[in-house]
C-alpha cells in the first residue's frame, strides 16, 4: 500500500499547483503544465501500467473543476503516459536533454489536445501564443528538476559558487 503514497503526493502536488502556485508562476498568461510534466516523469522512471494509471488519475484531478472534460483529460494523460513509456524504451534517455525534449513534446501534445477538445476555432492562435510557450516554460522547469535529480547540480555546488 505504501508504494502508492508517492503517487498520491504527486496528485496532491497537481492540486496544490493548480490552487496555490499557478498564480505565482504564470508569466504573461503562460503557465507550467505540471500534470503533463509529472506524467512524463513517472513514465520515464516507472512501469507502463503505473504511467497509464497515474496519467488517468492526473487527468481526473486536473479536470476536477470541469467535470465535462474529465474523461478526455484522463484518457489523454493516460495515453501520454503509455506513449512516453514506449518512446523511453526506444530512445536513449541517458541525456537530460532528451528527457527535457520528451517533456516538451508531451506538454505540447497535451496543450494542443486540450485546445482541440475545448476551442477548435482558435487552434492556430493558441498554439503559437500558449501551447509552444507553455511547452518551453515547462521544459525549463523540468530541466532544472533533472539537474537536481541526476545530481548535476547540488546544494554544495551552489554554495561553492558563493
Amino acid at each position: 500500500m505504501t508504494r502508492y503514497i508517492p503517487f498520491v503526493i504527486y496528485l496532491l502536488l497537481i492540486a496544490m499547483y493548480e490552487v496555490i502556485w499557478r498564480d505565482f508562476t504564470v508569466l504573461y498568461l503562460i503557465a507550467i503544465n505540471v500534470p503533463a510534466m509529472l506524467v512524463v516523469i513517472v513514465a520515464i522512471y516507472k512501469s507502463e501500467l503505473t504511467a497509464a494509471w497515474f496519467g488517468f488519475l492526473a487527468g481526473m484531478v486536473l479536470s476536477a473543476g470541469n467535470p465535462g472534460g474529465m474523461g478526455w483529460q484522463a484518457l489523454l494523460l493516460a495515453a501520454i503516459g503509455i506513449a512516453v513509456f514506449h518512446l523511453r524504451e526506444k530512445l536513449n534517455l541517458e541525456s537530460i536533454y532528451s528527457k527535457v525534449l520528451l517533456i516538451a513534446g508531451a506538454v505540447l501534445l497535451h496543450n494542443l489536445m486540450s485546445i482541440l477538445i475545448n476551442d477548435l476555432n482558435r487552434i492556430l492562435f493558441l498554439t503559437w501564443s500558449y501551447c509552444l510557450p507553455s511547452a518551453v516554460y515547462t521544459s525549463l522547469v523540468a530541466w532544472l528538476f533533472f539537474l537536481f535529480k541526476e545530481k548535476k547540480v547540488t546544494l554544495e555546488n551552489i554554495k561553492s559558487v558563493f
Partner: peptide
C-alpha cells in the same frame, strides 16, 4: 482503463460530478 474513460466520457453528470 478504457472502460473508466468511456464511463467518464459518456456517463454524463451522474458519473463525472460525484467523481469531481
Amino acid at each position: 482503463l478504457v472502460f473508466f474513460s468511456i464511463l467518464l466520457l459518456f456517463g454524463g453528470k451522474n458519473i463525472t460530478e460525484p467523481a469531481s
